[in-house]
Design a protein around this nucleic acid. Structure first.
Length: 239
DNA sequence: AACGCAATCAACCGCCTCAAA
DNA sequence: ATTTGAGGCGGTTGATTGCGT
């Protein structure tokens, strides 16, 4: 049975590759069949740990070493977790991506059972778009609303250490203050280990007041209330 | 039912690093 | 010091699937 399959596999489509990993040797390419999966699985179970360069021969597969490795690493390995990503996993991916960039294998290392390929695909098809939407929202011109600000900008960080409140003033922020706010809130979010990056991304808009509502510095410091506002607002934005 | 478009994801490609010869 | 082969990575492609018209 396997022999007949192998014979048919040889007729599979081929094309040369620059690194000679498959095409130049006439190795089969494209979707893996159930029979190929079975052969590879049997080989790994029997010989593991084994050099990937030896796998095609040991398994009786007309596939290149890379194709075998990829199939195992991304699909056949029994430790791979199937099914959709949980909210926690999603959140972790977003955080790690912010920290590591497109280092998919490193990110995958922090999510047991998830492959780098899965995470990359998930990011590209789901999360990158969401990030884009968030960025678009942030870039959306928001007319500054009158807000109650501390006259001393450094107070916000000091207050967390128990400093007394400075004098407050209600005003429409100018461009420079606008930037200061953005920096300050980003900093504040980072220092406070925000519950999620999404919250951090929305913090700025909330500080400025969304939909004509006015927010004060005190409101910013009351995270519970702020976060629920953010969630309500972001939910309505997603619709 | 048929078509077109968008989303998804498995698989490939090309490059890089590293160790052994 | 150089070459070569293996392992691994991120980017990209293309087949498949789902959905709207």
């Amino acid at each position: 049975m396997f022999q007949t399959f192998i014979a048919s596999a040889i007729t599979g489509s081929t094309s040369p590759t620059r690194d000679g990993s498959s095409g130049s040797t006439g190795a089969r390419k494209g979707q893996w069949s159930k029979e190929e999966d079975t052969l590879l699985r049997k080989c790994i179970n029997q010989y593991s740990p084994v050099k990937w360069s030896r796998v095609p021969k040991l398994a009786g597969l007309n596939r290149c070493r890379k194709s075998c490795r990829l199939r195992w690493v991304n699909y056949l390995d029994p430790s791979i977790k199937r099914g959709s990503f949980s909210e926690d996993e999603e959140d972790l991916i977003i955080r790690l991506h912010k920290l590591l960039g497109n280092r998919w294998s490193l990110i995958a290392g922090r999510l047991p059972g998830r492959t780098a390929n899965d995470i990359k695909n998930y990011w590209n098809s789901h999360l990158s778009k969401r990030k884009l939407n968030v960025e678009r929202r942030i870039l959306k011109p928001i007319r500054p609303q009158p807000v109650t600000l501390p006259q001393n900008w450094s107070w916000l960080t000091m207050k967390k250490q128990g400093e007394a409140e400075p004098k407050m003033e209600t005003k429409v922020p100018d461009e420079e203050e606008h930037d200061q706010w953005l920096m300050m809130i980003n900093d504040y979010n980072l220092n406070d280990q925000m519950a999620s990056n999404q919250h951090a991304d929305f913090g700025f808009e909330c500080a400025y007041g969304v939909g004509g509502e006015e927010s004060t510095v005190d409101a910013i410091l009351q995270w519970d209330g702020l976060l629920s506002d953010i969630r309500l607002w972001s939910d309505s934005e997603v619709e």
